[in-house]
């Protein structure tokens, strides 16, 4: 199945390129520009070479330690969120009804959390997690747990994970459900004739067919959790201490709070580079697996 080589295909891609470049190129260049300059007084910039970058990547400096801390916290958060959301999403998709009026109704209910603007999500949980007037906080306290999302670092961190699971598992559910529905009945009948158990059906039939939708789900979720901003900003403000200060939060603190453009710009470039590298590794592994299976 070799695709024909045809460079005129560029014509079909050109509109996409035009629109995306328009929004991507200039803002990107501005950031690169700031990352190699320093500022003296109002609007007086001079060349600063790679000094910002060297500071940032050296954990012995103050800004380096801060960046390393935020990076570790963010990676831990992304991994935790993915480990919960992907299995949970697939499991829920397997339980969803297949026909009847309940299908549409269930899909709408499941998609609702994703369709709420992100600052509203924060607003909901700000109240919902409170120990005095919010159901979630009050229930946990009632169970005798030591829960306080604004004072206790562990509670705050768990709250952000729970918000993310609540908010985004539906994405995995919808994609997995659509992937499962695309499997022809003949596959299941063949499995039944072979006497395959439920687990064998899942591993040998369902999971391989979910491959492509899961690549999209996992990559999207990784990128979004790695760039999470609004929810911790609204709910915990990055605290207590810096327990929920993820990379984006830290970056905005530096760029807007301290107006330290050089530091912020170099940090965002490194940050972007890390995201791209991790996504690339993941993307390559997933597509290689796919190719090997087809051969």
């Amino acid at each position: 199945m070799d695709k024909p080589l045809n460079n005129r295909a560029w014509l079909l891609v050109a509109p996409v390129l035009l629109f995306v470049l328009f929004s991507a190129l200039l803002p990107m260049m501005t950031v690169v520009n700031y990352s190699v300059q320093d500022q003296m007084g109002e609007n007086h910039f001079f060349w600063n070479g790679d000094a910002w970058f060297r500071d940032l990547l050296n954990p012995a400096t103050e800004v380096g330690a801060r960046f390393a801390g935020a990076l570790v916290r963010n990676l831990a958060f992304s991994v935790t969120a993915l480990l919960i959301e992907v299995p949970l999403g697939i499991a829920v998709a397997l339980c969803l009804p297949r026909k009847g009026w309940t299908v549409g109704a269930t899909l709408v209910v499941i998609a609702l959390p994703m369709l709420i603007p992100w600052n509203v999500v924060g607003t909901i949980w700000q109240i919902f997690a409170r120990q005095d007037i919010g159901l979630f906080g009050a229930a946990l306290t009632g169970l005798g747990l030591h829960y306080n999302d604004t004072q206790d670092p562990v509670s705050a961190w768990c709250t952000i994970v729970i918000i993310d699971v609540w908010h985004w598992t539906p994405l995995v559910v919808l994609l997995s459900y659509a992937g499962l529905r695309a499997i022809p009945d003949a596959f299941y009948q063949a499995a039944r004739i072979d006497g395959a158990g439920r687990w064998a059906v899942f591993i040998n039939i369902e999971l391989p067919k979910l491959h492509k939708v899961l690549v999209i789900a996992i990559l999207l979720r990784f990128m979004q959790t790695f760039m999470i901003y609004t929810e911790p900003f609204v709910v915990t403000g990055g605290g207590p201490g810096n327990a929920t200060t993820f990379l984006s939060i830290d970056l905005v603190k530096i760029a807007l709070g301290q107006v330290d453009l050089g530091n912020a710009a170099s940090m965002s470039l490194i940050y972007n580079l890390i995201t791209i590298t991790l996504s690339w590794i993941f993307f390559t592994i997933m597509t290689q697996l796919d190719r090997r299976r087809e051969e």
Binding site: V20, P27, M28, M223, A264, S268, N272, I276
Partner: peptide, 15 residues
């Protein structure tokens, strides 16, 4: 194209 999904909006808001 995919890398454009990885640019945190908080960084690029001002540009």
């Amino acid at each position: 194209l995919l890398t454009n999904l990885m640019a945190p909006a908080s960084v690029y808001a001002m540009p």
